[in-house]
Design a protein around this nucleic acid. Structure first.
Lengths: 317, 317
DNA sequence: ATCATTTGTGACGTGAATTCAACATGGCCC
DNA sequence: GGGCCATGTTGAATTCACGTCACAAATGAT
């Protein structure tokens, strides 16, 4: 039951075609219709409007007063529709505002270096880069793409894996000197930790005990709203923190942070995904371009960690 | 076989409604549709454009970049369509340019006196009054209404009878003094007449002989492009002319023109019609108003012709 | 006057769009 | 943290409008 029985756009299109070509038959040919179809459509339009638009003889068509003004308006409206749809359609060239959300460490260390090149390759795209460590709802925040670190919650979002980051528990040398170096996860109870001001997907820090994984976390001495603040707190000797290796690799290398309990979390990794809203509708070109760009260029190359005793691990490469 | 499967206008309308009301269900309620219908329509639109317009959760809708610009454009386009159709639609109040065609005598004597009042009653109508005695094609000349005197050719034009005009053959007294007064139609061969520069619906002058009508016409001494010129020629004594009584009534009354052969054409009348293009489509309001106005106010009251001998007839009333 | 072309009309069949029902999802309140 | 309500989505049946077809009318030209 076609509720929208009146498709004004088609009416306008046919009407304009008839006027342009000066005949029902010619218009029908061009529109791949039969003359009778055109005739009926014009009649419908006139009946709906309640006024005659075209005076027609078998030989000649003439526009009425209404027909003339309607024709001019129709031409303009059709043009504007065309333009609107063309603008909305995902053209070959990505353009428009692309909103990307990422946590701060990944954004600073991996996204930012790539942005100039991406913008150079897609000049018509303007980028809004929002860096927050709080979980962002893609829909609500109008983000086109979000970078998620860690396990993905079931969602209709589509994820493209960008890489894996090893997570390490670290402390500043002077903190470890004061509080001692934990030897087992249970030791964490006697330490201080750096937590988060926002809820995270996993609550504690995962440690392997045999083939089981258990969580432990030191009582927090401070809570940070993003990874960079946590890093600073850790560097300041506030306590232990579990951070991404790609984030604090240089600190470890420089000796400003020391990994601990490494033997308990050899596989503590978190996948990094680019997440977007695809699948129920076509993806805007700028989103697809950005995703593809990330997948190709992002290399989360954790500095290889040379196995050694806690407190003596060294970074290589 | 719906050739125009995409009715852009409906798509835009639904899309705008969804954005305005902030939900598929609300929009569906307002549009008298089912939510599923709205969902599918939006999906169709997005699929056609190849880009997502609305990010939707069950709770919240958010526009993508494309969606926002498309929304703005769609709102404007819908408004313009509305305006275009409203302007083209025959509103309650007649307005626009009304083109009227008439022969010169009728126009001068009957139409002109009525125009001011009509325009006063319909201030939004502007009138183009084209006075010509040549036959006008309503379609080609873009005339809304034409006044036709005489028999109507079969046509899809619709005619409203405005009155009847008696036709009389007249000559100036000095012409009749020189050429004599014709007693029978056959006498016309020895006279001179005033013809027309344009083809007329009837070729000759009709005369009754018994119950049959035969045509006769004097060889033309001059040809006029309109009735007023013919009248002047007749007044100047050029020859005999067959003119409308409402036209030359005063001349006869004043004795400047004298009817002849009146006994042969007691019923030589020509109907006066207002002709327009109706029936296959609704009539613009201004046309209907004008036709109604004419039908009500036009009174072709031939001055009554008192029966007398040719050359001695007198006008009364 | 006849013919060819074009528009108008009635009946019919198609098919795309809507509906209906059931499912999935997310959000919210307790 | 879990169940409930509202919302959006999906799949299959149905329906109603639209275009086609064949024929008629009419107009303009030869």
């Amino acid at each position: 039951m076609a509720r929208f029985d009146t498709n004004r756009s088609a009416e306008m299109e046919v009407f304009v075609r008839v006027v342009d070509l000066g005949g029902f038959t010619q218009a029908a040919r061009k529109l791949r219709l039969t003359p009778s179809g055109v005739s009926k459509l014009i009649s419908r339009l006139e009946a709906r409007l309640g006024s005659r638009l075209i005076n027609r003889t078998t030989r000649k068509l003439t526009l009425t007063e209404e027909g003339q003004t309607f024709y001019q308006r129709a031409v303009r409206i059709l043009g504007e529709m065309e333009e609107a749809e063309r603008e909305a359609a995902s053209g070959a060239t990505p353009r428009g505002r692309l909103t990307v959300n990422s946590n701060i460490p990944f954004g600073m260390l991996h996204l930012m270096p790539l942005i100039p090149r991406f913008l150079r390759e897609h000049p018509d795209v303007t980028l809004d880069l929002v860096l927050t460590d709080t979980l962002i709802d893609l829909m609500q925040e109008r983000a086109d793409v979000a970078i998620r670190v860690g396990p993905l919650r079931a969602s209709r979002l589509v994820a493209r894996k960008l890489g894996t980051s090893r997570m390490v528990v670290v402390g500043a040398p002077d903190y470890l000197a004061r509080a001692g170096t934990p030897r087992t996860p249970a030791d964490l109870a006697d330490h201080r930790g750096i937590g988060w001001t926002f809820p995270r997907s996993i609550r504690g820090w995962p440690f392997k005990r045999g083939d089981r994984t258990e969580e432990a976390v030191p009582p927090p001495a401070a809570r940070a709203s993003d990874g960079e603040i946590a890093r600073r707190l850790a560097l300041g000797g506030v306590g232990l923190a579990r951070l991404a290796l790609f984030h604090i690799g240089p600190d470890i290398e420089a000796g400003h942070l020391v990994p601990v309990l490494q033997s308990y979390n050899p596989g503590d990794r978190e996948d990094i995904h680019a997440v977007y809203v695809g699948h129920t509708a076509p993806l805007p070109a700028r989103v697809r371009a950005f995703i593809d760009f990330l997948a190709e260029h992002v290399r989360v190359n954790d500095p290889a960690l040379k196995r050694a005793q806690d407190g003596e691990w060294k970074l290589v490469g």
